[in-house]
Structure formats: structure tokens, C-alpha cells
């Protein structure tokens, strides 16, 4: 893969990033009503205070100037002050983002961990009861609303059986100093295995809820592509050469069958990032997605705008990297 081509791909990314910024900007700009009035709401405020807030948010400028100011500020990480948290928006985001990323990564791990073995088994035993059960379960998985599944898990395992914590990321007594903000990582870095275990205990149900539908989808993809790969000539050839079954499946089949799985997993990261709003709300997970939802209720427009932008940028970034990786593992696709 030549470096120049990577640069070219990066250049193609620029109009998309610009467009994403424009859409987020328009979300607030095109909304009927005066954001300042809505933000001040019932609070007692003088016209001077409203004017001051309007100036602070740059609302006295014409729209195109505001847009370029918005992009300029976004590039430097200046998203203004959060109305509700009363500190810079970027601080709130930096504080909450790691929790969302941690949950997303664990959910993705669970989804892939369930989907790949089940998908392979279903493909190998095509038409068997195992295949049929796996297919039904996967269809049920994509049909289940995540918020409901999460609540049912809490009711059963936390409220009635008491095996699992109801909410939160880690027990207060076990907290470790912050390095990355991802507790699973930080606790290992500090050598605190008790914290690690407790954090794992806390993240299990939310991550399972978030990863469930994704896992169902990825299982179907893995199954379909494994079936297709197993029908290829080179598999037949390898089989004819007398290669062992396990080696055949793992070395020759799986490597090729996983390409669609990985691609779909990357494309559907957006599903996990969006699903975070639900799961973080259900499990009281203090992440960025929940802050966005709370921001809507507290009419904290700068925070909502920046939060939506940051999540969209992460999503675009993940897809970009996945695109590059895809071309790396699949030699047939030339950059």
C-alpha cells in the first residue's frame, strides 16, 4: 500500500468531515425559536444577560461567519461553555468519552466473541438443529429492543437474584487514579486486579445489552460468508491434498470468511455508538452518549452539538481505518 494513496484517501475524507460539521451546525441554526430564550427558559434573566449569552454563543454574527467560527473552534477543541455543567464543553466530553469508548469496545468484543464461533458452527452444520436454533436466536436478537432487554436483565440478575450490580462503572471504594479514564485498562496499569474484577462485573450486563443485536447480525454475516468460502475451489483442493479438518477450516476457510465480518463490524460501529444512548441511560453508565441525552433535557445546546459532532467524527474515523484495514487483509482489493 503506497503512502500516497493513503494521503489520497485522507483527502477524500475532508469533504465528508466538512459536511458532518455543516449538518451539526445546521441542526442548531435551522431550529425554529431562539436558542438563548429556550436555554434561559424559566430562569429569571435580564435582557442584558440574554444579550451577553447571545454574544458568548456568537449568535449576533451572520450564519456563514458563525459556521466558519464553529469549524475554527471545533478544530482547536473550543466548543464553548456548557450551560448546565458551567465549565468548558471540551472538559465534559474528555471526562465522559472514555466510559463510552470502554463500553463500546467491550460490547464489540462480546459481539465478535459470540458471533464468530457460532457463525462458523452454524455454517459447518448447515441445516442441522444447531443451525436452525442459531438462526432463530439471531433473528430474535435483532428484533429485541435494547432498552427492554437491558431492563429485563437488571430485573432478573440485579434486582431479583442480586448477582449483578444495578448501575455504575465500579464500586466507589475500589476506584483507581485516572490514566485513560477506561477503568478496565487503568486498573490493570495500576496492578489493581480487585478493581479490574469489579469493573468487569459492572460492565458485563451493559456490554451484553449493547452487543446483543450486533452479535446476531455478525453471526448471520459470518455464517453466510463461511458457507460461501467452503464452496470455493481452493478449499476443495486443500481438502483433496488431505489437510486436516481443523487446519482447513481455521487456516484456509476462516481467514477469508472473516473479511465480511470485520467489514460489517466496522460499518456497524455506528449502531453501537448510537445504542450507547440507550444502554448508558438504562444502566446509569456515566458516558458521553448519556450526557448528550441529558443535555437535551437541560437545553444545553453547545454540549449537545459538540457531543453529536465528536461521536460522528469517531464513527467516520473508525470507518476510514476499517477501509484501510480491509484493503490490507484482502489482497484482491488494490488501493
Amino acid at each position: 500500500m503506497r503512502f500516497g494513496v493513503v494521503l489520497e484517501r485522507l483527502a477524500q475524507l475532508i469533504p465528508v468531515l466538512f459536511g458532518v460539521c455543516l449538518v451539526v451546525f445546521l441542526m442548531v441554526t435551522l431550529t425554529p425559536g431562539d436558542p438563548v430564550e429556550i436555554m434561559l427558559g424559566n430562569e429569571r434573566s435580564t435582557p442584558e444577560q440574554a444579550e451577553e449569552l447571545r454574544r458568548q454563543m456568537g449568535l449576533h454574527l451572520p450564519p456563514h461567519e458563525r459556521f466558519f467560527a464553529f469549524i475554527g473552534n471545533a478544530v482547536t477543541g473550543d466548543f464553548g461553555r456548557s450551560f448546565f455543567h458551567r465549565r468548558p464543553v471540551i472538559e465534559v466530553i474528555a471526562e465522559r468519552l472514555p466510559a463510552t469508548l470502554e463500553l463500546t469496545i467491550v460490547a464489540m468484543t462480546i459481539a465478535l466473541g459470540l458471533a464468530i464461533p457460532l457463525g462458523i458452527l452454524a455454517a459447518l452444520k448447515r441445516g442441522s438443529w444447531l443451525d436452525r436454533v442459531a438462526t432463530m436466536v439471531s433473528l430474535a436478537g435483532v428484533s429485541m429492543p435494547g432498552f427492554w432487554f437491558g431492563i429485563m436483565l437488571i430485573m432478573l440478575f440485579a434486582v431479583h437474584l442480586g448477582w449483578m450490580p444495578v448501575s455504575g462503572r465500579v464500586d466507589y471504594a475500589l476506584e483507581v487514579p485516572r490514566l485513560t479514564g477506561m477503568i478496565l485498562f487503568d486498573s490493570l496499569a495500576h496492578g489493581r486486579f480487585d478493581t479490574f474484577r469489579d469493573a468487569l462485573h459492572h460492565i458485563l450486563m451493559p456490554a451484553l445489552t449493547l452487543g446483543l443485536a450486533m452479535s446476531a447480525l455478525l453471526m448471520r454475516v459470518t455464517r453466510a460468508s463461511m458457507i460461501e468460502v467452503l464452496q470455493q475451489d481452493y478449499i476443495l483442493f486443500a481438502e483433496a491434498k488431505g489437510i486436516g479438518r481443523a487446519r482447513l477450516i481455521l487456516r484456509h476457510g476462516l481467514r477469508n470468511a472473516l473479511i465480511p465480518t470485520v467489514t460489517v463490524a466496522a460499518l456497524e460501529t455506528g449502531y453501537l455508538l448510537g445504542g450507547n444512548t440507550i444502554v448508558e441511560t438504562v444502566f446509569g453508565w456515566p458516558g458521553l452518549a448519556r450526557v448528550i441525552v441529558e443535555g437535551i433535557f437541560s437545553r444545553d445546546y453547545p454540549l449537545v452539538q459538540a457531543g453529536v459532532l465528536v461521536i460522528a467524527l469517531i464513527y467516520v474515523g473508525v470507518n476510514f481505518v476499517a477501509d484501510l484495514l480491509y484493503t490490507l487483509i484482502n489482497p484482491r482489493v488494490k488501493l
Binding site: 469533504p15 459536511g19 449538518v23 455508538l273 445546546y301
Partner: peptide, 22 residues
């Protein structure tokens, strides 16, 4: 291009952002 840009948003986040404003 418009489709590409809209695909850059996770669905639920996009809808939540809009609902918050509207």
C-alpha cells in the same frame, strides 16, 4: 455526497440530536 455525509452519523445519535433541537 449528501448521502455520504448523512451516513457519517450513527442513526440514533442523529435522530436524538434532531429531536433535541426540534
Amino acid at each position: 455526497r449528501v448521502v455520504d455525509v448523512l451516513l457519517g452519523f450513527p442513526y440514533l445519535i442523529f435522530a436524538i440530536g434532531l429531536m433535541g433541537m426540534m
